[in-house]
Design a protein around this nucleic acid. Structure first.
Lengths: 185, 185
DNA sequence: CAAAGCATGTAAGCAGTTACATGATTGT
DNA sequence: ACAATCATGTAACTGCTTACATGCTTTG
């Protein structure tokens, strides 16, 4: 469960409650995790069981008690070991490509409609990514993170830009495919 | 289970046994499914249960009996309906990006090593993709597929090229990130 | 008064993986 | 002799998802 390392990553900045981590994951689009309860709370239980994090229960007057998780030295060591492990190749899964692969039973108009719809979705997504980058570079990510190094800021922006570029490239690919199909007719 | 539609897609060309489909999926890299038994055999049971495919058991003298699956009219209709449904956005999951995001606890040399390793893996993968394309354009895919239309051939080649371009783009991104990090020092 | 936020957790399920099991046959 | 191919199937697991459950508080 690699999300555990992502959680350790956030906890290496500062301590968070499960609820806060949940929101962080829901907001961080580049992290591809939805931030659902089972995964976050479950992972935190396991991380605590293995000694990678410690828990402090904070009673509150008007709100339910919150469990604040803090990374331990062991947790930091585990995170570092993982960071140094061999990176894996990225995985892309595009159901739209599977649809395209069997578009043979569609008319040219139906296929063109499919591609147009796919392209517009990609365009929207690319715009959203660019918007996220624009906002991220003006304001602080909002989670109350301590001073971040220039290097780290560069890396985070690059990751966001990679995501935007992916959707832009995919869109360009669709455009060129549409052009080629038009030529064929 | 969208793999069902991919199975129906292959069966729309010609009838196959589960064993053959398994091999097809294992070979078709652009399809991101590993072609493991549980998925193929399980999906075929479900497709048969829902009436999308019919089964013919062929007894053989020297080898175990094989179940040959044939798409039904209902199966063809289901496939077509799915082909016309709204395409979904592609999903990318890159663990390497998560590693990078918390590279803060690494030295510049360690980070550079990580990036170099990631880049070389991407380069290898891109070469493999290009090789697949080269082989696909010279020979027939090898599954004994009937005559394919020009349009279909174009689409399949485009999908393969999309995959190759993805790894090449990712590699270019890593190269530029490495350059930026070198500048920063 | 309803909706959203705070905060935790559980249940049920889908999609996908590796590994195991059987058993004859063919190639090295 | 050992491994690979043919051919089917099952067991056990990981990772991830939606939806449900509770209950108090703040905002519109």
């Amino acid at each position: 469960m690699s999300i555990k390392f992502a959680i350790l990553g956030f906890l290496s900045w500062k301590s968070f409650s499960g609820y806060e981590l949940k929101k962080i994951f829901a907001d961080a689009l580049s992290f591809h995790w939805s931030g659902n309860n089972n995964q976050i709370y479950g992972s935190l239980v396991e991380l605590h069981g293995s000694g990678a994090v410690s828990i402090e229960v904070q009673q509150q007057e008007k709100y339910p008690a919150r469990k604040v998780y803090t990374i331990t030295e062991q947790g930091r060591a585990e995170l570092r070991t993982w960071l140094l492990s061999e990176p894996e190749l990225p995985i892309v899964r595009s159901l739209a490509h599977i649809q395209l692969a069997w578009a043979e039973s569609l008319t040219s108009e139906e296929l063109e409609g499919l591609l147009a719809s796919y392209e517009s979705q990609l365009a929207d997504q690319a715009i959203m990514c660019r918007e996220t980058i624009r906002r991220a570079s003006s304001t602080n990510p909002g989670t109350g993170i301590p001073e971040r190094s220039e290097r780290e800021i560069l890396i985070w922006r690059s990751i966001d830009e990679n995501r935007a570029a992916f959707f832009e490239n995919e869109r360009a690919w669709v455009r060129s495919l549409r052009a080629k199909l038009r030529e064929l007719q």
